[in-house]
């Protein structure tokens, strides 16, 4: 019997997936979670052979769980299940140690087949494909780390100006909102450009969104 852990923040989907997988003779779902913290709790205690992990848990990085599965269950494997079609999430998942990445356009039968193959130790991708994904993941991770470091270098006031830029305010509007002069706003913006390595307001905002300093809710 293959023991599974399912992590996905979409409750009714997760429950349905668990229901379906439990109907398969050689599979049993021994743990499920909808948040990163719940998943961390069950990873420590549940005996699992395979973790099927959503990569985006209500804005939290499900990616981090892949490593934790490997730490707590050296013989278990992790497979990512994502609704994201981007190559980046696939690359980061493989770099983190996932043996496979499934998209939510797949069928339940494909998931069952993948689970069996992964637990049996069969490769789900060629060594070349895996190596390329790891290298691509390294590039994305490096870019993410550098981006977050650059954003951490912004002063509190520069962060306020960046948030104001995201709402579409011009210099006058930002000055009024933050009770500073337009000249001071211009100085802050120049420093923001320099620290982030960008040369326009739009680029600064996109940089902040890409590195999760700003969310969609912060935008105009």
């Amino acid at each position: 019997m293959i023991r599974l852990m399912i992590v996905d923040d979409h409750t009714s989907f997760r429950e349905s997936l668990v229901f379906m997988l439990n109907l398969v003779d050689d599979l049993i779902v021994v743990a499920q979670a909808g948040t990163l913290s719940m998943a961390r709790d069950v990873i420590r205690t549940a005996p699992i052979d395979l973790a099927l992990l959503d990569l985006d848990l209500a804005g939290e990085r499900g990616l981090d769980l892949i490593h934790e599965v490997r730490v707590h269950h050296p013989n278990a494997v992790a497979v990512a299940l994502t609704g994201n079609v981007g190559a980046k999430s696939r690359a980061l998942a493989v770099r983190a140690g996932a043996v496979g990445v499934l998209h939510k356009s797949t069928s339940i039968q494909d998931i069952v087949t993948t689970i069996r193959r992964a637990v049996a130790g069969e490769p789900l991708m060629s060594p070349r494909e895996a190596a390329e994904l790891v290298l691509e993941g390294n590039r994305h991770e490096k870019s993410d780390v550098e981006g977050r470091q650059a954003l951490r270098q912004l002063s509190g006031r520069e962060q306020d100006v960046l948030r104001a830029l995201a709402t579409g305010l011009d210099n006058q509007g930002i000055a009024q909102r933050l009770f500073i002069s337009q000249e001071t706003v211009r100085s802050h913006i120049v420093r923001i450009y320099k620290k982030l390595g960008v040369d326009s307001r739009l680029q600064a905002v996109l940089f902040a969104v890409r590195h999760q300093f700003l969310s969609e809710d912060d935008l105009l």
């Binding site: 979409h10 989907f13 349905s16 229901f19 609704g83 939510k104 356009s105």
Partner: peptide, 8 residues
């Protein structure tokens, strides 16, 4: 998402 349709 096809998987959502199928399992639901």
């Amino acid at each position: 998402l096809p998987l959502y349709r199928e399992v639901l």
